[in-house]
Simulated scan of single mutants.
Amino acid sequence: MLKVTDLSVSYGHVEALRGVSIQVEQGQIVSIIGANGAGKSTLLRTISGLVKPLNGRVEFLGEPLPKKPNKIVAKGIVHVPEGRKTFSGLTIRDNLLVGGYLFKGKELEKDLQDQYKLFPILEERKNQYAGTLSGGEQQMLAVARGLMSRPKILLLDEPSMGLAPIIVNQIYDLIRQIRDSGITVLLVEQNARKALGICDYAYVLENGKINLSGAGDELLRSDAVRKAYLGG
């Protein structure tokens, strides 16, 4: 479904990604784990067209991606960024409508109701400003806003960052629901245990390069992964 081949990205003289290749099959949750600064967010930003690569290519459904981010969204790749990035001065409803900008009328209203079913707290507070929500509620809003664009694949960047463990569990339950609804998920996380526990396949990114890859449960049992990322 999504194929990244030999991708390299630099910020000035700093190499953020060096020859990265990954593959995401339809219906999977694929995780990218690694330490802060490993290049995980850069990988997602490059796939979604926000960063231009030096080398390599990204293919989606067998075709090269368009270069402009809005056209990439229209193809079905939607990026939920690190730090939520909700519009604090807009209501929850208006944040969701921004996410659904590709659609109009009854279609848009149906999408809105679908998100309220998946995230009941957002319907309860739909007229509340996004900036007044808790961190967990803002993360739910960010995911729901992404789903309003009807993604075929959802790119999630650090969805558990800064959240209490009980909220993290809720977010990961929602990720499973999203996958079960037919949407493929590419997940970037520092919380390696959670990411590996949920995914079909995973890649370990270190210093801009893929160091290990394998099934999530396989990497959970890996001594190298356990020592570096799981505290064991």
Rank of each mutant, 00 (worst) to 15 (best):
K85N: 12
P53S: 14
V73C: 12
L54C: 05
N70I: 13
V58G: 12
K126R: 15
Y116V: 08
P120R: 09
R84M: 06
I72M: 03
S48R: 08
K67P: 00
G89P: 02
I92P: 13
P53I: 10
N70R: 14
N55W: 12
P69L: 11
G76Y: 07
I47A: 02
E123L: 05
Y101D: 04
N55Q: 15
P81M: 02
R84A: 03
K85R: 15
E123G: 06
I121Q: 00
V51L: 11
L112F: 03
I72S: 07
L90Y: 05
K68H: 08
N127L: 01
P66V: 12
L43G: 11
L61M: 15
K117C: 07
P66T: 13
G83S: 06
L102E: 03
E107A: 13
A74L: 06
T91M: 06
P53H: 11
G99P: 02
V51T: 06
F60I: 12
L65E: 00
E109M: 13
A38S: 15
L44N: 05
G100S: 02
E109C: 06
T42S: 13
N36G: 07
R45P: 01
K85P: 04
T91F: 05
S41R: 10
N95M: 04
L50P: 04
L118Y: 01
R93Q: 14
E109V: 10
V73R: 07
V98P: 06
L102G: 02
R45V: 08
N95T: 04
A74S: 10
V51Y: 14
K110V: 13
A74T: 06
